[in-house]
Design a binder for these strands. Structure first.
Length: 274
DNA sequence: TTTATAACCTGAACGC
DNA sequence: TGCGTTCAGGTTATAA
């Protein structure tokens, strides 16, 4: 489910409700996520206080005095802030009970998400094994034409797989990869090392553009993404090609085509993108 | 070393 | 109604 805009929307939604709150209790209902949740977390976090919530790639970093709680939503995860007496839903696996009588709950039907702990004594959070090899943020100045040109020079794979590679740029998932390539008029199966500098420049701007607009719209609602307050994201209405096989291209009316690239559904206009 | 594929897991949508 | 098949936003582990 969640790509970068959804994670960023979640971060903005939960922060005012949980920042500066003391953690009264931690409940682990099913710790069997991508990696098991450390059962000692309940003891570690009790009476700790949340300072801030940051985001790196699709990871949410909940900073406390004692360390950082690393959260990942996987394919189907979502975080909600609810009154702490709200009945638990199916697939609510983990929650923080806070001093303001609210609870931060992680719901994740497919359990591809993660809840990990990085103590303050373990060094800087960005040295964590999951974070240390991540490429630049797509909306940062570091992600620019020169950078991407160098990265793609020896990439012998297709451009869609390349921009979804966390070692090239983070946060571009399956939906926004298709959308960015449509905006840049680049065929998704094109070899990454055959793009011209001009195409790369347009692609960089397209990725930034698509992600920024999606964040403004509160993310994309497909199967099950809602914002932390329960509101849907509105970016789905702005999708140009994703999920639109057989429908007319918004630019030229040619039917949108679907092709499987790296086991993922990909959508493009055969006339506009080449 | 780089790239492609399989795997993790549940549920919704679809076809028969 | 019910059963089997297919597909889904991500990432890692393994194979080639």
């Amino acid at each position: 489910m969640p790509e970068l805009p959804e994670v960023e929307t979640t971060r903005k939604g939960i922060t005012p409700n949980i920042a500066n709150q003391c953690i009264l209790a931690v409940n682990i209902y099913n710790g069997n996520l991508r990696w098991p949740i450390d059962p000692k977390l309940s003891e570690i976090l009790k009476d700790d206080t949340i300072n801030s919530v940051e985001r790196r790639s699709k990871y949410l970093l909940v900073n406390t005095f004692k360390g950082t709680l690393i959260l990942h939503l996987g394919m189907s995860g979502s975080l909600r802030v609810v009154p702490n007496d709200t009945p638990r839903k199916k697939h609510d696996h983990f929650e923080l009970i806070l001093a303001n009588n609210k609870a931060l709950r992680l719901n994740d039907p497919r359990r591809f998400g993660a809840v990990l702990w990085h103590a303050i004594g373990d060094g800087a959070i960005l040295t964590h094994s999951l974070l240390k090899n991540l490429a630049p943020e797509p909306l940062s100045d570091e992600f620019n034409t020169q950078y991407l040109t160098e990265k793609l020079a020896n990439k012998n794979t297709n451009i869609k797989t390349a921009i979804m590679d966390n070692k090239i740029v983070v946060g571009v998932g399956n939906i926004y990869a298709s959308e960015s390539l449509f905006m840049a008029k680049i065929q998704p199966e094109k070899k990454a090392n055959t793009l011209t500098k001009k195409q790369i420049s347009i692609l960089v701007n397209s990725i930034k553009d698509v992600l920024s607009k999606a964040i403004k719209a509160g993310g994309t609602t497909l199967k099950d993404f809602t914002q932390p307050d329960g509101q849907p994201g509105y970016f789905e209405q702005e999708l140009q090609v994703y999920g639109k096989e057989g429908l007319p291209c918004p630019i030229c009316n040619t039917n949108i085509r679907k092709v499987i690239i790296g086991q993922r559904a990909s959508f493009y206009c055969p006339k506009c993108q080449n």
